[in-house]
Each structure stands twice: as structure tokens, then as C-alpha cells.
Simulated assay, not measured.
Amino acid sequence: MDLTADESAYVAVTAVPEFGSRVSYADGVEVSVQDADGNNCSPVESQEARFGASESPHPITATAVRRVGPDEKTCEGAGTYYVLVERASAPESSQGAWDLELRVASEPALRSTRAVPTEPPRSWNSATPAPPTGERQRREGGASFHGARALGRGVWGDSIEPGETLFYRVPVDWGQQLSVGAELGSSGESGALGGGGASGESGGADGVGRGAGRGSGYVSSALVMSLMNPVRVGVDDADTAYDGKQKTAELDPLPPVAYENRYAPADEVAAMRFAGWYYLAVHLSADVAKKFGDDPLDLTLRVDVGGTARPGPEYAGSPVPAEEFGVTERDREAARRGEMAAGSGVDRGDDGRAMAALAAGGIGSGVVLLAILGGWAWVARRRVA
């Protein structure tokens, strides 16, 4: 990456193992940004992402950063910087190649630091808000960041198959506070969602199909929900075990989006540092199929975006991609309409498999955005709308 002296660069690496492959708890990827002498630019040597307790193959994302500012003493100045991606796999894990997607975002320096606090907020409303209620509306999840389905405040539903990962995105402006809960239906219900109903309800005329209950057992970390900020830095995770009955997972209370959150020692607070699109990745462990069959299960998301939007900091230049750290009226309309991410460059064949796409383009100051979307087997099972 060719960077100027006054831009922070965020590199997100998403690794996608082949559907049905074997992964262990500690398998994952590490990513770091280095200068021309091999010195690491991140506060720690590298950032990592692991598959964790679910031990189920699904997309995982790790990020690294080159920061600029008066307190940053490494990787100063303009020049060429390097991204190092490393994979960790246990000997007993599948050794097949993983597809990678690399994304770079650039944040300019502030026009003036005098009007922006340099300490994290001392207090904020940490009470869990009452989740939205009402009729559940159909919003089919996407198969990747590029196909993430837009959501606003409300109750949304889809069905999810064992081994599948669904992506959503929520616009959160400066000063606003996001909360999300996920509900997984019982194994006695099919995942065919129609116009209404809540997670776990029986189907019929409302469009939620009936299914014969079958299977028994227990799957730890069956449903894993991950929240990432606009540059795909992990904010928080929530998971739940599954025994065939409806289950719920909720993210911990998060602070309102503020520039000064970046100075907080807690990672989940520091990650709420940008306005923009926040991403949800919801994964259902492949082990659910072994215990309860491979029929899809009902998934309900309760999304709340509270607080009044306020103006953000004044940057000295333009973020890259443009409008990266903000929410526009166009974004809010996309959430109301449930649009997929624009310019994904991803097409689907008749079997639902993502077709190969390669996109590369300059994104300012010589930084190059490289997105490699191979023939990902993990979306081969996705149903075509």
C-alpha cells in the first residue's frame, strides 16, 4: 500500500474455508501491517481471528491498521507499507486452500483536533433497550459482506441452514446506539418464512411452514452472531447453545458512535468509533445437522438503532471509499428497502454459487482495493430468491 503521511489505513482480511471442511478451535488467520523495514504498525504485532468453540467452517475476518497521530511513534511518514496474512491450521484440520478477500479503507486526519475530545466518554447509557416487537418481516441474508442485506430498526426474519452464514448491514450514525438480538427457532419448525410470525411459531396460513420435529442432542456455540464496524473491525460476538428448542443470543450493550471512543481501553467501545454501515454475520454450526437434521431453522433478528444523529468530526480530506464514515439519506432509504450492498460485483449461477469476480481499483493516494471472490463452496447451498 502506498500511503501518505496523514492517513490511517485499515486492512480487513476475510478467510473462507471450503464448505464441509474440518477446522479446530485455534485455526484462523493473522494479519499485520508493516513498514519497509518489517516493523509492525499495529498496537500489537498482529490481529487474529479464530473459529473458536463452534469449530464450524465459516467466514472469519481479521483486521490490522496503520494509524497516524501525535501519539503514534511507529510507521510514520509517507511510503510503501505491506500487509502480511498468515494462516494457522492444526495438523488434524483440513489442509485445503482458503479463499481470501482483502479490503482497505483510508481515514484522513482531522481538520482540527481542538474541538474533538481526546479521552473516551466517561459514561453512557449501558442499559439494554427493550427489543423491538411487532410483525416479523422477511429479509433474506446475503452470502458475504458484498451481498449483506440492509436492515433498520425492526423485527426481521429469514431461515438459516446448518453450516450457513448470513450477512446483514445496519446504518448507524454519529451519536446513535445499536443493539441486536437473534432468535433461533425450534427444530420442529421449517425455515420457510412468509409474511409474518415470530421465531418458533407454527406455520400455516401466515406463511411459516410446518415441519416435523426430529432429532435430539446438544450443540454448544450452535448460533454465532458477530458485529463488525464499517472497516470490519470486530465489535462484539454473541453465541448460544442449541438443544432443539428456541434460543436467543444478544450482543452486550454498546455505546453511542463517537470519534473519541477510539481512546477507550475496552475493544467493544473503541470499535464504535465510526459512523456508517455496521455488519452482522450470523452463523449456524454445521454440527446442528448431525443432531437435528439439515432442514433450515427460523432466524429472527431484533434490531434497534436509538438516539438522535449528530454531526461527525470534520476530516481534512475525504475517506476512501467515499462516504465511508457517515450515514446518508440514501443509506437510510437502503435500510428501509432492504437493499443489498451496491457494487458487489457478485453474480449467482443457477445453483446459488457465487461466481468468481476480481475487482481492483485505485482508492486514492495509491491505495489499492483488492477483492477476490472465488467460487466459494460455502454458499453453494444458498437458496436463490
Rank of each mutant, 00 (worst) to 15 (best):
G196I: 02
D287Y: 07
E250S: 14
R87V: 06
N261W: 02
A64H: 03
T80R: 15
G312H: 06
P253W: 11
D350R: 15
P319R: 03
E183W: 10
T4Q: 13
E333P: 00
E107V: 07
T308S: 14
E76R: 15
G326H: 00
P162V: 04
Q95K: 09
A335I: 02
R381A: 14
D173H: 11
V384A: 04
D351T: 13
L254F: 08
T308I: 05
G203I: 01
T128W: 11
Y263W: 14
A9Q: 05
I363W: 05
A26T: 09
E260S: 14
S46M: 10
N40R: 14
A115W: 04
D252V: 12
E101I: 08
E250V: 09
R214G: 13
V224P: 02
E323C: 00
A53E: 15
V16S: 09
E339I: 00
G215H: 11
W378P: 00
P117F: 08
F51D: 04
S220E: 15
F51E: 10
S106P: 00
P311A: 11
A109L: 13
K245M: 08
A62F: 10
S186P: 02
Q137W: 02
A115H: 05
W98D: 04
E92S: 15
R111G: 15
G134A: 05
W174H: 10
D350Q: 10
V68E: 09
P131D: 00
S89N: 07
P171D: 02
L358Q: 12
R103F: 07
L299M: 04
W376R: 10
G215R: 08
V33Y: 09
R114C: 00
A264P: 01
A182F: 13
G20R: 11
A127Y: 05
V320P: 00
A335S: 07
P117W: 12
P230N: 10
K247P: 00
S126N: 13
E183Y: 12
V23M: 08
R310M: 13
F292I: 05
G217H: 06
A36D: 12
V231D: 09
Y25P: 00
P120Y: 03
L299C: 02
A78L: 11
T63W: 10
W156M: 02
K290H: 05
E329H: 05
G152T: 03
E183R: 13
E323N: 12
L369R: 12
R67Q: 14
P311K: 06
S8H: 01
P253Q: 11
D252H: 10
S159Q: 10
T300G: 02
Y242A: 06
E260Q: 14
E329K: 12
G196D: 02
N229W: 06
L110P: 03
P265T: 13
G209P: 01
S93R: 03
P296S: 14
A148S: 12
I60D: 04
A90C: 00
V269E: 13
L373A: 13
A271G: 01
V68L: 03
A270M: 05
A5L: 12
S94H: 03
G362L: 14
V282W: 01
P43A: 12
A342P: 13
G338Y: 02
A150Y: 02
V235L: 09
T4Y: 03
A258K: 11
I160F: 04
T128M: 12
G77T: 04
S344R: 09
R310Q: 15
E164Q: 14
I372E: 08
T328P: 05
Y263Q: 01
S54M: 07
G69F: 03
S190R: 14
G28C: 08
A127M: 11
D252R: 15
